[in-house]
C-alpha cells in the first residue's frame, strides 16, 4: 500500500489489513483533523485498507 501524507510524504505501508484509525494514530495524526481517501474515494476511520490500496490523507482546512 502507498500512503500519502498531507505534507506530500509517501510511505510504503505493506499489504496487511489495517484500519484507517490505526494507520493515522501510528503516524501521530488525530483522525478528526484529516480526511482520508482510498483509491480516490472518501472512507471513514474505521474502514480498513490493504493490498495495493492507494491511501491519501488530507488536512481539514481551517478558517473562513
Amino acid at each position: 500500500m502507498r500512503l500519502q501524507l498531507p505534507d506530500g510524504t509517501i510511505r510504503d505501508i505493506g499489504r496487511e489489513v489495517k484500519t484507517v484509525a490505526a494507520l493515522l494514530t501510528g503516524c501521530n495524526i488525530n483522525p478528526l483533523e484529516v480526511i482520508v481517501t482510498k483509491n480516490g474515494r472518501l472512507i471513514p476511520e474505521d474502514a480498513t485498507v490493504s493490498g495495493n490500496d492507494e491511501v491519501r490523507v488530507f488536512l481539514v482546512a481551517h478558517g473562513g
Binding site: 496487511e16 489489513v17 489495517k18 484500519t19 490505526a22 471513514p44 474505521d46 474502514a47 480498513t48 490493504s50
Partner: peptide, 11 residues
C-alpha cells in the same frame, strides 16, 4: 496488527 484481520467496508 494480527495477520488475517478482516476487511471492513462500513455502510
Amino acid at each position: 496488527m494480527p495477520a488475517g484481520k478482516k476487511e471492513c467496508i462500513p455502510t
